[in-house]
Amino acid sequence: MTAPVRVLVCDDQALIRTGFATIIDAQPDMEVVGECGDGRAAIDLAERLSPDVVVMDVRMPVLDGIEATRLLAGTGVANPAKVLVVTTFNLDEYVYEALRAGASGFLLKDAPPAQLLHGIRTVATGWGLLAPEVTRRLVGRYAERIRPVPGTPDDVPLSTRELEVLRLIADGLSNSEIAATLVLSHETVKTYVSRILTKLDLRDRVQAVVYAYRHGLVA
């Protein structure tokens, strides 16, 4: 049998934290290995418990979720953790910074339980997850904060079709939506996504979105 996904839940609101833990622990393929209410505690617990996924709030005391994510999953971290940020978009004006800090996925707190569970499973397998509404509203809103890199879109080492897929990823489309838009099979889209990540040396879809904006591939 496959070992269950080990999850650490970090949220300063006890009711939300308990709710997430109850939903997660009810799944046969998941287990909550720890709970905490601030980013510093999340780092300490992650070092001790080695969870597969950290479900992270953003606004917390002691150390916020953005800085905690940077210390757990950022560039240069020896064994980066997989962090799924679950946030209230309208309140968290700096969530985009968590993306830059190394988060593997984003969901909104009002998402149904099935989306939370899907997000944990997706991030655990190594795939990044961006809820479409988060991508369209958050990345679009904060795109101007991304510092462009020198060069032009023509310098990006992707084929024409791969560029199309990357732009649609940056627009927040899921693989199924991309398949419908480009009239491709779902498996073909998955192959394109994997190829894009490999060619650009990116970890997941989250990094692909940042790459697309930094290289001027989307407005």
Rank of each mutant, 00 (worst) to 15 (best):
M1W: 00
T2G: 06
T2N: 15
P4Q: 04
V5K: 13
V7R: 11
C10M: 13
D11N: 11
Q13R: 04
L15S: 14
R17W: 14
R17S: 11
T18F: 14
G19K: 09
F20L: 15
A21T: 14
M30T: 05
E31K: 10
D38P: 01
D38N: 15
G39R: 13
A41R: 15
A41D: 15
A42P: 02
I43S: 07
I43V: 14
D44Q: 11
D44C: 06
E47I: 02
E47P: 10
L49P: 10
S50M: 08
V53G: 12
D57W: 12
D57F: 13
M60D: 05
M60K: 10
V62I: 04
V62A: 03
L63H: 08
G65S: 05
A68N: 12
R70V: 00
R70M: 00
L71M: 06
L71T: 00
L72N: 08
G74Y: 04
G76P: 09
V77K: 14
V83L: 05
L84W: 12
V85H: 15
L91V: 12
D92C: 10
E93S: 10
E93A: 12
Y94C: 10
Y94N: 14
V95I: 11
Y96D: 13
Y96I: 15
E97V: 05
E97K: 14
E97S: 11
A98R: 04
R100K: 13
A103E: 04
S104C: 00
G105N: 03
F106C: 11
L107R: 01
L107F: 02
P112D: 04
P112K: 07
P113I: 08
Q115F: 00
L117T: 07
G119W: 06
G119I: 03
T122R: 01
T125K: 00
W127N: 10
W127M: 03
G128M: 09
L129S: 06
L130W: 04
L130Q: 02
V134W: 06
T135A: 02
T135M: 00
G140F: 02
R141G: 12
R145S: 12
V149F: 01
V149A: 12
T152W: 02
D155N: 07
D155M: 07
P157M: 09
S159K: 15
E162Q: 15
E162F: 02
E164Q: 15
V165K: 09
R167L: 07
I169H: 07
A170D: 15
A170R: 08
A170M: 10
G172N: 01
S176C: 00
S176V: 13
E177S: 01
E177A: 03
A179N: 08
A179S: 04
T181V: 05
T181L: 00
L182M: 12
V183G: 00
V189Q: 05
K190G: 06
V193M: 13
I196K: 05
L197N: 00
D204N: 15
V206W: 01
Q207N: 00
V209P: 10
Y211D: 05
Y213Q: 13
R214F: 08
L217V: 06
